[in-house]
Design a protein around this nucleic acid. Sequence first.
RNA 1: UGGGGUAUCGCCAAGCGGUAAGGCACUAGUUUUUGGUACUGGUAUUCGGGGGUUCGAAUCCCUCUACCCCAUCCA
Length: 752
Amino acid sequence: MSESKDFLRTIVEEDLKSGKYKEIATRFPPEPNGFPHIGHAKSICINFGIADDYDGHCNLRMDDTNPTTEDTQYVEALKDAVEWLGFNWGGKVRYTSDYFPELYDYAVELIKMGKAYVDSLNEDEIREYRGTVTQVGKRSKYAERSVEENLDLFERMKKGEFQEGEHILRAKIDMTAANMKMRDPLLYRIRHAHHYRSGDEWHVYPMYDFAHCLSDYIEGISHSICTLEFENNRDIYNWVLDTLGLTSTRPYQHEFARLGINYTVMSKRKLLELVEGGQVSGWDDPRLPTIAGYKRRGYTPESILNFCDSIGIAKANSMVDVAQLEFSIRDDLNTKVPRVLCVLDPLKVTIENYEGSEEIDAPYYPHDVPKEGSRKIPFSKEIYIERDDFMENPPKGYFRLTPDQSVRLRHAYIITCKEVIKDADGNIVEIKAEYHPDSKSGSDTSGIKVKSAIQWVSAKEAKTVEVRLYDRLFKDEAPEGLEDINPDSLQVIQNALIEPAVITEKPDERFQFERQGYFYADPIDYTDENPVFNKIVGLKDSWGKKKKEAKPAPKTQAKKVQVDGEVTPMSETEEKLFSKYTTELGLNSEVANTLARDDKLSNFYYEALALSVDSPNPVGLANIVSNEVARELKEKSVDELKFNPIQIADLVKMVDDETISSKIAKQVFEEMVKTGEDPTQIVEVRGLIQISDPAKISPIIDEIIAKNPDNVAKFKAGNTKLLGFFVGQVLKTTGGKANPKVVNELVAEKLK
RNA sequence: UGGGGUAUCGCCAAGCGGUAAGGCACUAGUUUUUGGUACUGGUAUUCGGGGGUUCGAAUCCCUCUACCCCAUCCA
């Protein structure tokens, strides 16, 4: 694990440390209504990963509460994905549908508590009654039904006595809640549908918000980790559990940002559209960001895992560059797979001075990959090279074969171009060349220097293979829809030529075709008669990049103009207070503004000021009230504070008479917030009195200077930021007690 | 527009009052019979903007801005 933990692991560790949970239990809870994609992989890594890291366990649970969209094929895909990524869910797969009876009982309990009711409004009315984000909703008249009536109705709903939409079970919470999700959320709806697991047993199905929290509780989950869009649902999550009194060791929900990758789409809806619309060949089309797609394309589980690890976990919506994913797979395959020669776009080369044939022994792995293995490559008079490895009129910096530039055939001889044969249209159809007999790879005595080595195959022995070249599915970085599809995302090469060993020996299923990229023997379409390879990812190509850069896209970056909005004007009384603060008390306008606009703060300030008549310091007091006290008063009322205005006045006094520094004052304040103790007492008990005597501080500084020669040098070289470093060190060793002003002066002097 | 979130390099992302981590991308160079790999160096005087508090602010306070989520009988 890396040096820094993500915020979820931080929470988990705190909960473990505080004893909130004895064991960590997470869950991966997909709905089986689509194939899992790489976003799911992130969630899988988080949930199973955290469970692994803290010796807990992670359940795989199908969140199957909607009979109309879910299907067994998806649960299989989900299981495959988790398994392929290398995780196991210990024991059996869980299904929310297995909890239907329990869930039903909890709903009955809620009804009995008067916390849920059967509503009989129709769909439109419910929507209307719910209000909008800015307008409160209103309660249905059916909310007044008696417990008995609700119980009876709900049971009959279950038995299937009503039509879909006729009734619904809702929680009785608050139709005026600012959080729309809390406006009497729906708990159960009637569905006369066949469920892929529970069959026709049920006529009512629980909603997500009701089923999810309870399923977590039933399974003993400690940390219910989901994506950001469920933040608003957290209130219901807690409401259901709290209301039912399921409070002992119960799960809490935490949200992280879902994964976005550029040049692709991640929503189930859009993915389904592509699959059903025939834009791709199926859920496992190698261009899709589905796990099945990556698997089919040739990605390894390790590469996906590493990718998920590398992108981190946070709460900011983000779009990860697909280059990051490509790096992960290249990085993984680099040390694993054999190198072979394959020519995608063949150009015939006849070596005029070569007769007969030979077999060249060539290792499968380059010098920097510590793996053993080699094969024989047949060599003969007629070979094929890659078409773009020859240029008649090369640009500057071209390292390959030209009429004037020899090139090495990888693992074999150096050849020199003698003649370029063209057809009637001027297309190059063949190269006549000569080889240098004493230049054989490994025993080269020719002394010829070449700039590169290129791949080739012997014409007679080469095998024809199909190669599928994949590019990004969308041409737009943030695709909206089908109109952004990249028309060239798939290129099929029917007649690529590959060295025979790949087909006959099958040393692996993944290969690096040298100088081109990583390829994977398609697990479905590959046959001995018609071998098929999928391109997993290309090699980094600094030459190709250079070529493209010749015509850079002129990007005009419009600088964003920061607009300042209107500040709400002050009321008359606020205005009066403000002017009094600035003119009479001498506060600066920002502090005065903060105080004047806040009743709680201004009252607190007044009280403290009145209580410090003997040595009034309106400015110092105002500063601490508008900054430190303000923080505490943000979410609390004055009565909830453990400290009072007198204590704040005392605190300011101690700073004024230099008993303590302002740094210590903050420390003391933190303590007052927690305990409500008197500041004088805190200072006394902890011995926080400020050290201002240079004679005491000086030796400490000397010591620190002696310990950090590097930083002293840097400072003297002009890095004045380091002053803060030295001051900080001194303050640290004195427990914050050294007078920072004195320290600053002393340090500056000593380092001169 | 009410509520809930989020802003640190081109893309991710650490950082929690004391020297702005790291990865990807980019770039220069070294090694190389893959224009690959590996290695070495270069990349934020500044943390969405503006103020304030402090000896010292990405971190605390105020304020403004931008983006995301919520008005499915989806999850």
